[in-house]
């Protein structure tokens, strides 16, 4: 285990704990984005062949798509609850 793997492992553990402990929903989404970057890099470093790159790209595009949908729904729900309080 060299410096790169050690760095990515420490970062993913720290970010995973912060996803669990944060209360704000938007900040939780930002930490989740950082964790997706780390897992995609770990997949590419674990499988040292071109197929691993394809898997990493597919995982990254899929997770970005779903976090886009989550952020859009957070906006819709905030608008709905704001209108409800009026």
């Amino acid at each position: 285990m060299d410096a790169v793997l050690l760095l990515i492992g420490v970062i993913s553990f720290v970010v995973g704990l912060r996803v669990f402990l944060t209360k704000n929903r938007v900040q939780r989404l930002l930490y989740l984005c950082c964790l997706n970057f780390a897992i995609s890099a770990l997949i590419a470093l674990y499988i040292k062949s071109p197929m691993g790159g394809v898997v990493a790209a597919a995982y990254f595009i899929g997770s970005t798509l779903s976090s886009n949908a989550i952020a859009h729904t957070i906006g819709k729900v905030q608008r709905l609850e704001g209108r409800g309080e009026w």
Binding site: L29, C33, F37, A41, P50, G53, I61, T64, S67, N68
Partner: peptide, 21 residues
């Protein structure tokens, strides 16, 4: 950055594919 793959995702993908291919 969170909602669409911009230059940050592009830099990561370039590094991964340069490392592999």
């Amino acid at each position: 950055i969170v909602c669409s793959p911009d230059a940050s995702a592009g830099t990561l993908m370039a590094a991964i594919f340069y490392y592999l291919l």
